[in-house]
């Protein structure tokens, strides 16, 4: 694929990758992956364990080294930028684990989320985040370490929301949550984030649940994209379930999942 065609593919996208390869110690886990997220779109990436989903996100925001290809944010190449540069530029990343400051209170966590804002704007933004996640307002002085799994995830999203990012990048927000809670996180919280007008790129293992809230979905296995389409297209596809239960090529290197 020539660079020009690739360029045409990502024109107008909020967040995109072009033939992205990334991994650890020079060994690619994600291989030549091209995805795009348009403004306001909810895009999900699903796939079995070890397919390279988390690594993709980490490469996107600069935690894992990009070995080949490009990362683009609002038409600008940002390959191998740093997580704080991503935060400054308007990309809010919620990691899978270690997503809140456990010893700090809920309010302090939100304040840290708004660290880059002028001090005067912080209280106003907190009010706004509490409008999006009203449940948080009842636990502002509680320590984040004492929250339940679902509350914690909500706080992590609220923390990122402080900077009013134009794109959310969420790494398995339902990991380690009970099924009912997971559905609530996906159906309510992601929708709330999306309602702010931002793009959402979400990696999930609970494929069925995340399909329900996605505009478009990529199915990854073995570090590559196996299928792509709207939820309806994928559910109709006979290959979809099979991708999860084997038959895919094995990854070439240890994964970050």
């Amino acid at each position: 694929m020539s660079a020009e065609i690739a360029g045409a593919q990502v024109r107008g996208a909020a967040l995109a990758t072009e033939l992205l390869s990334a991994g650890y110690q020079g060994r690619p886990v994600v291989q030549e992956l091209s995805i795009r997220v348009d403004p306001g779109e909810v895009v999900s990436v699903v796939g079995p364990n070890g397919s390279g989903k988390s690594t993709l996100l980490k490469a996107l925001i600069g935690v894992v080294q990009v070995l080949g290809g490009r990362v683009l944010w609002e038409g600008r190449e940002v390959t191998n930028w740093s997580p704080d540069a991503a935060a400054r530029a308007g990309v809010g990343y919620v990691p899978q684990v270690d997503d809140v400051f456990a010893p700090l209170t809920v309010k302090e966590n939100l304040e840290m989320g708004g660290y880059l804002l002028p001090v005067r704007e912080v209280p106003g933004r907190i009010t706004h985040v509490l409008d999006v996640f009203p449940q948080l307002s009842r636990m502002l002085s509680r320590r984040a370490g004492r929250l339940s799994g679902g509350e914690r995830k909500m706080l992590a999203m609220g923390r990122v929301l402080m900077l009013q990012p134009r794109a959310f990048v969420l790494d398995e927000p339902t990991a380690n949550l009970a099924p009912a809670l997971a559905n609530m996180v996906l159906e309510d919280h992601i929708r709330q984030l999306s309602a702010t007008g931002a793009s959402v790129l979400i990696v999930e293992q609970r494929a069925r649940a995340v399909l329900a809230i996605s505009d478009r979905t990529y199915v990854m296995a073995g570090g590559r994209c196996q299928l792509e389409g709207t939820p309806a297209e994928l559910i109709a596809s006979p290959d979809f379930a099979e991708t999860f239960l084997g038959g895919a090529r094995r990854p070439a290197a240890p994964t970050g999942d």
Binding site: S82, A87, P95, L163
Partner: peptide
């Protein structure tokens, strides 16, 4: 790491 993610 998380602090850095927050832009600190």
């Amino acid at each position: 790491t998380l602090a850095r993610n927050c832009g600190i």
